[in-house]
């Protein structure tokens, strides 16, 4: 089946900028968190996920990391680490949730707000540079083949950045499949993946498995054959 419009793979590169804002304790952290640019929140909830691809699950978001490692506030660190970014499709509500968790913790543990960290938290942000790649898929089989060939930054852009940073309510892959092929079930399955628990390579494999793994396509047959081995 041919799509009405091709899926044009984009990629997104990130240049990290230093905002100059830094927090020495939780009180300062909360105050800055409430007003820092959206791009800073986006950066810190994805930075470890993007950078430690070879070590799945070891690192959560930067906020949890700092609270645990530098302040030894392990309960709060676990609460922050447990935020599922996927539940949010806009930075505003994600920021509000992070602030709420820290705020509630400080109300219950007021002394924690003044504990000085060994190292300050430096708020960074990223400048996202979005570019169209040479890959455009017209059907699902071609789509799976290209998913193998595009970089992980492309996957990140369509799955994470489009959804949370650019305000699209779903990931781009699901939207395209729903609109072009009317396959709402498949679109829902992709949207239901818990991407933050996989490395990007694993996420790519999960998607290809969902899209082509059960279909009688060349890619599907290759995957079945690989599985059988």
């Amino acid at each position: 089946m041919i799509a009405k419009t091709p899926f044009e793979f984009h990629t997104s590169s990130q240049l990290v900028a230093i905002t100059g804002r830094k927090a020495a304790d939780l009180n300062e952290f909360l105050a800055i968190l409430k007003e820092i640019e959206d791009s800073s929140i986006f950066y810190h909830v994805h930075h470890a996920f993007r950078e430690y691809q070879f070590a799945p699950g070891l690192y959560t978001n930067d906020f949890a990391h700092w609270v645990g490692d530098e302040l030894n506030e392990n309960v709060l660190a676990e609460k922050l680490a447990n935020i599922n970014i996927k539940d949010y499709t806009e930075i505003k509500s994600l920021r509000a949730r992070i602030a709420e968790i820290v705020d509630n913790y400080l109300q219950a543990n007021p002394d924690s707000g003044r504990l000085k960290a060994r190292h300050k938290f430096y708020f960074c942000k990223n400048v996202g540079i979005i570019q169209k790649t040479r890959y455009a898929a017209w059907d699902l089989e071609e789509f799976c083949g290209m998913l193998h060939r595009v970089g992980l930054r492309s996957l990140f852009f369509h799955f994470f950045e489009a959804r949370l940073r650019l305000g699209r309510k779903s990931n781009d892959f699901s939207d395209w499949i729903k609109f072009n092929f009317g396959d709402e079930r498949l679109a829902r399955q992709i949207e239901a993946l818990d991407p933050y628990l996989y490395t990007m390579d694993q996420l790519r494999d999960q998607m290809i498995g969902l899209i082509c793994g059960n279909k009688d396509t060349i890619m599907g047959r290759i995957l079945k054959w690989l599985k059988a081995r």
Binding site: S13, Q14, L15, A17, E37, D38, S39, K125, N126, V127, G128, I129, I130, Q131, K132, R165, L166
Partner: peptide, 21 residues
């Protein structure tokens, strides 16, 4: 190299957080 290329683009698009090429 990649980061320097991004820097050139950021310098040419000063003040923008998202640059669509």
């Amino acid at each position: 190299l990649r980061n320097y290329l991004l820097l050139f683009l950021a310098l040419e698009n000063a003040g923008k957080d998202i640059i669509q090429l």
